[in-house]
């Protein structure tokens, strides 16, 4: 029987996906419903905003941002 699962499809590149999976693991698998392939995962509708903000936080921590070339 065909099954329909409600959720939000997240499309991202593989490196970001790894981070998302990492976040999911650290928080008791509360976000991801299913990993679909290397670039797509299915996330709970209610958790997508939180996941996004956690990803932002993680990226800030891990990636050194280049100094902005803001000379006037």
């Amino acid at each position: 029987m065909v099954k329909a699962v409600k959720g939000t499809l997240v499309k991202c590149d593989a490196s970001i996906k790894a981070m998302l999976v990492d976040i999911d693991e650290k928080h008791g698998h509360d976000f991801i419903i299913e990993e679909l392939d290397e670039e797509h995962i299915l996330v709970k509708d209610t958790k997508i905003a939180e996941l996004k903000s956690r990803l932002q936080g993680m990226m800030k921590e891990r990636l050194k941002e280049p100094e902005s070339s803001g000379s006037e």
């Binding site: 029987m1 065909v2 099954k3 329909a4 699962v5 409600k6 959720g7 939000t8 499809l9 997240v10 499309k11 991202c12 590149d13 970001i16 998302l20 299913e34 679909l36 299915l42 996330v43 509708d45 997508i48 996004k52 990803l55 932002q56 990226m59």
Partner: peptide, 17 residues
């Protein structure tokens, strides 16, 4: 740089016979 993911809300259809 800021927005690395693209999201769409909807349904996954699976387990076809």
């Amino acid at each position: 740089e800021g927005e690395r993911v693209e999201t769409t809300s909807g349904y996954v259809m699976k387990e076809f016979e």
